[in-house]
Design a protein around this nucleic acid. Structure first.
Length: 605
DNA sequence: CCCGTTGCGG
């Protein structure tokens, strides 16, 4: 039976059967308010969940304040009214309100049900509060919801989002009944926690048990494929998605675009993107960030403009990619205007602010970076890491250390990248003793196991200062087999300080790992040249020509009034080449004349 | 009522 609202408002309604039709039909505030007034007058308001439906109606039109008013005016609140209010707050993403209502229920001895616990757990996920979530779960068990699929999948999701896949796995295996959401929570959890192999295993297990998959499960699988670094697997998955007709979903398409860019197939990513009939801001973000991560700066800027012409204003994700692109090529002028746009149109928050600061640092304006860093409202771990790295790469080891000491005064705990930046800064400034001191403290006080990067920094630090033997001792103390970066740092030290005997062994080690970097081969070649071992030099040179090296040699890029000028080794194509060459010759003569030129005399920009 | 896409650092 269908009733029109006006009809019901006229005749009044006394039958609970009217409720569903009434509330479903109410789409504007005035009607809902009228309905509420009628309900209060009739005995219907006493009917189970009639008021809950009014609250839900207000929530549906996003008028939480009215919903709250109705809720607060009620003399007696049952589980359904509480749930309606809790779900309304959950839609609005107000986890604190959700949990406050949940606590109120417990206090007033209103028995929560499955949906109460489900939504309360989701609030804990939003807050990333594992401890609180586990408390809610224990309460759910007390009330007999241990085997509820909704509560169970929320718990799995809590563990997944907090990076506790081991705990999730224990719960999952003990679950008596699992719905599709439970499976996708696990699969997506593995995919998002850097365990793509386990995600694929989970999918295989699903197939073995005959579970019917959906788009959401497939998104997790695509993400796993993106991180597996197996482009062929990604291609065949895409084929499967087409055959199963799962490829028409925007989210599936966007995750495929992301997968292709992560696997280096930018052409396929763009082809797919072009074919998408509905693109959202996230799709644009995936495309732009994919090209930015692969260093294709021109495309990033082009897409950013195309995005605008399609009616999407640049958001924080696309601008972050644009800033990364500017940082890569030193495009200070564009970086500055993006900074301006962010201040005017968005917010200079922690994440965007840090990206801007990093951009200034990489574009050769470390003092701008520092000024912005000091002006930030709040700084997270990455902000500190960026500013410490900024001083390091510009050769200000002492300042990097001083900022590190300031960071120690905050609540933030330095992590392995903080120490990477610090040690690298100390290394480039020749602060050997400080480097040794903080390296030891990192291990003993901060309990951070030194990684390959840290060892490479330390070997660089010692070898650069000519303490090659000490560097060798450090390498011998390593648990794992040293990687290429360590040997290159050591060889560089041997080259600069004429350590023939050690260098020869190290050069062999470097060549053994078949580096695809031209610069490394050049270093080995230069080392042999210093030893006047011309046969070896010829061998390395021949090898360089024979095997196409992946990494192109370094080149300088200078921006003048918004125009970019690139200079490659031996490249004479610049229109002012002769002028530039004589200018550089003059500068070089001047510098040789000024014997004790200090770095600080260059000043900061 | 529970699960899905993009994003700052070495």
């Amino acid at each position: 039976m269908i009733f029109s609202i006006n009809n019901l408002l006229q005749i009044g309604f006394t039958d609970p059967k009217h409720l569903k039709a009434v509330v479903l039909a109410s789409k504007d505030k005035t009607t809902i308010t009228k309905l509420y007034a009628v309900m209060i007058k009739t005995n219907l308001s006493a009917h189970r969940n009639s008021i809950g439906r009014i609250i839900a109606s207000y929530a549906r039109i996003n008028d939480i304040a009215s919903a709250r008013k109705v809720f607060d005016e009620l003399p007696h609140r049952g589980v359904d009214t509480f749930n309606a209010m809790i779900i309304a707050c959950s839609r609005k993403e107000s986890p604190f309100e959700v949990l406050s209502l949940y606590n109120q229920m417990i206090r007033e001895s209103v028995r929560p049900d499955s949906s109460t616990f489900t939504v309360a757990l989701k609030a804990c996920v939003n807050l990333m509060d594992l401890k609180l979530g586990e408390q809610v779960w224990h309460k759910a068990v007390d009330f007999g919801y241990e085997n509820d699929e909704f509560v169970g999948s929320s718990l799995l999701n809590l563990y997944a989002k907090c990076g506790k896949m081991d705990k999730a796995m224990v719960v999952f295996d003990k679950m008596q009944r699992k719905d599709l959401v439970c499976w996708s929570s696990m699969l997506n959890g593995f995919a998002c926690n850097g365990q793509p192999r386990e995600a694929v295993d989970m999918y295989k297990r699903m197939q073995k048990e005959g579970i019917e998959e959906d788009e959401i499960v497939m998104v997790g699988l695509v993400q796993a494929c993106a991180n597996l670094g197996n482009p062929m697997l990604g291609l065949s998955l895409h084929g499967y998605l087409i055959r199963r007709d799962f490829d028409r979903d925007v989210v599936v398409q966007t995750s495929l675009v992301d997968m292709y860019t992560k696997n280096g197939h930018l052409d396929l990513a763009y082809q797919l993107f072009k074919k998408m009939s509905h693109k959202n801001a996230v799709s644009w973000g995936a495309l732009i960030s994919g090209f930015a991560q692969n260093g294709l700066v021109g495309n990033v800027l082009e897409f950013l403009m195309e995005m605008q012409s399609c009616g999407f204003e640049p958001d924080s994700v696309s601008l972050m990619s644009a800033l990364l692109a500017c940082a890569q090529i030193g495009f200070l002028k564009l970086g500055k205007s993006i900074h301006g746009y962010i201040v005017r149109r968005l917010a200079f928050d922690q994440v965007l602010g840090t990206a801007v600061i990093d951009m200034y640092s990489k574009c050769g304006a470390p003092s701008c970076a520092r000024t912005l860093f000091d002006r930030m409202d709040s700084r997270d771990l990455i902000s500190w890491n960026v500013i410490i790295a900024s001083y390091g790469v510009h050769g200000y080891g002492k300042e990097a250390l001083s900022l590190f000491l300031q960071m120690k005064e905050t609540k933030l705990k330095p992590d392995n990248s903080t120490f990477s930046s610090l040690l690298s800064a100390l290394s480039h400034s020749g602060l050997v003793e400080e480097g040794r001191y903080w390296f030891d403290l990192m291990i003993n006080e901060y309990k951070i196991q030194p990684s390959e990067k840290h060892y490479a920094c330390m070997v660089d630090l010692l070898a650069r200062a000519g303490r090659v033997e000490e560097a060798c001792e450090l390498i011998n103390s390593m648990n794992a087999e040293p990687g290429l970066a360590v040997w290159v740092a050591l060889l560089s030290g041997c080259h600069n300080h004429g350590k023939f005997l050690i260098g020869e062994v190290v050069a062999k080690k470097v060549l053994e790992s078949n580096p695809d970097d031209l610069g490394i081969h050049a270093l080995v070649s230069n080392f042999f040249a210093m030893e006047e071992k011309w046969d070896e030099v010829a061998g390395v040179r021949k090898n360089m020509r024979r095997t196409g090296m992946k990494k192109v040699p370094g080149y300088s890029l200078v921006e003048v009034n918004g125009d970019l000028h690139a200079f490659l080794m031996g490249d004479k194509s610049h229109h002012q080449h002769e002028n530039l060459k004589s200018m550089l010759d003059n500068l070089y003569q001047d510098m040789r004349g000024t014997r004790c030129l200090q770095k600080s005399e260059f000043g900061m920009i």
